[in-house]
């Protein structure tokens, strides 16, 4: 790269992009699918964990400690540890990503539910709403903006970590980056790594925008 000017690099990079265009799109879609599934699983599991633990101190602390400890496991290690259980490809990546994505969602679900005004909940109770009705019709809708914020953080984290999944043959832009890593020194290496990185950034922005809009649409005008 030293004997290459930045202009020359750009020309060559755009050339690379146009040659590998189809490939980039396809890998991007795979990356998005992988992250979407994981975020969805994290959200479902995280909200359920949050809803079942937010009322009592002990379970709440345990839930946060456990999901927090998941995040401290190095991703490299976790992906590899999954192989005996799930084999290679997408499954180990999805399981690991789901685990990584839990903490922000569990934490925000608990925070959101605990911040719901108790007078509102009491008036719902006083009007004859049962426990379940209160949760579904009052507490969750009121906590929803906070939960969505958690989902957005999870999504950003998972879009990044998903690249490491390539080490267990997972799909996504990680394959570009690891290919590049394997060819350090050759001109193609930089192209591969940079395109993989840019792809991740584009997906992150895209997802965050979609979630922002979705969050707004699903939040009542009364609490926006």
């Amino acid at each position: 790269m030293n004997d290459q000017t930045f202009g020359e690099f750009l020309t060559e990079f755009f050339d690379f992009l146009s040659r590998r265009y189809d490939d980039l799109i396809e890998v991007g879609l795979e990356h998005m699918a992988l992250v979407s599934v994981s975020v969805l699983l994290s959200t479902v599991i995280g909200v359920i964990v949050g809803v079942t633990t937010y009322r009592t101190e002990r379970p709440r602390e345990i839930a946060l400690a456990v999901t927090g400890s998941f995040l401290t496991i190095p991703s490299f290690a976790l992906f590899i540890l999954m192989i005996p259980i799930t084999g290679i490809g997408s499954p180990p990546v999805i399981v690991a990503l789901t685990m990584y994505g839990l903490l922000p969602i569990v934490r925000n679900t608990i925070t959101g539910l605990r911040e719901v005004d108790q007078a509102t909940v009491e008036s719902a109770k006083g009007m004859g709403m049962g426990r379940g009705q209160r949760l579904v019709r009052i507490e969750l809708p009121m906590a929803w903006p906070v939960i969505v914020a958690g989902v957005r953080i999870t999504t950003l984290i998972l879009v990044g970590i998903a690249t490491i999944g390539a080490i267990v043959d997972g799909p996504g832009y990680g394959t570009f980056i690891f290919d590049g890593l394997a060819r350090v020194g050759s001109p193609a290496a930089i192209n591969l790594v940079v395109s993989g990185m840019l792809g991740v950034i584009v997906i992150a922005i895209l997802f965050d925008t979609i979630l922002a809009v979705l969050g707004k649409l699903t939040t009542s005008r009364g609490i926006r």
């Binding site: 509102t120 008036s123 719902a124 006083g126 009007m127 004859g128 009542s220 009364g222 609490i223």
Partner: peptide
């Protein structure tokens, strides 16, 4: 409770 009207000081309207 459905047969008893209930008004509290904070009123507790459902904001959403």
């Amino acid at each position: 409770r459905r047969k008893i009207g209930y008004v509290i000081q904070q009123i507790g309207l459902f904001p959403h």
